[in-house]
Simulated scan of single mutants.
Amino acid sequence: MPKDVPVDPRGPRFSAWITSAVLAAVLLTGSWRLLAAQAVLFGLCAFISLKLNPWGHLYRYAVQPRVKPTAEREEPAPLRFAQGVGFVFALVGTIGYATGLTALGVVATSAALAAALLNAAVGLCLGCEVFLLLRRRVPSLARPQ
């Protein structure tokens, strides 16, 4: 399993824009297959490595060389947790759309879209904030010393 290293925070925001577009397309089309693909991507990033995100690669190789460098970095654990939350919402939405429970699909997808847009537009990662709150309450989530 690849080790995650601290990341440029602009990469996840870039990824959030693309994720927002994907989730908006799901809402417009009702495509459970597209949402399932997004769920797989969330799952890969959450449970294996953030390095498996193709939008991160696109940012790293096409965008990052063209923007001003930054020394700012984010630890990967909150980002991976946020991807796990996205995975749950996308999975629930996929199940909803695929089984004819369209309202469930719309609600779950809309929640994921709202979170992705918040991250993309203003840099507020809801899943990351939940992780940080949980870390204060659950000792096993604390950073290794």
Rank of each mutant, 00 (worst) to 15 (best):
T19A: 10
V7H: 07
V7W: 08
G100R: 14
A90T: 05
G123N: 12
L126G: 08
G11D: 03
P54W: 03
A46H: 07
T94G: 04
E74D: 14
V85G: 02
V63Q: 08
A111H: 06
L132I: 15
V7Y: 06
A46K: 00
A77Q: 15
F42G: 05
L101A: 15
F131W: 13
A90S: 13
P2D: 10
S110H: 04
V7N: 04
A103C: 05
P6E: 10
Q145V: 10
G30S: 01
V5W: 14
A71F: 11
G100E: 09
A112F: 00
F89R: 00
S20P: 07
A116I: 09
A120M: 06
Y61M: 03
A115M: 12
T70K: 09
R13I: 04
A71K: 13
A24Y: 07
Y61R: 12
P6K: 13
G30L: 03
F131S: 06
G96S: 03
P139L: 09
P76K: 13
Q38T: 03
R80A: 01
V7M: 14
Q38G: 03
S49N: 08
G127I: 04
R66Q: 09
L44Y: 12
L58E: 08
L41W: 05
Y61I: 09
L126A: 15
G96R: 01
A16N: 02
V67A: 06
L44W: 13
R10K: 13
R136Q: 14
R143C: 07
K3I: 13
S110L: 15
D8L: 05
A24G: 07
W17F: 15
A111K: 04
L91Y: 08
G105I: 03
R73P: 00
A39S: 07
V138W: 12
T109I: 07
A114E: 04
L117G: 06
R66D: 09
Q64F: 08
M1N: 12
W17H: 12
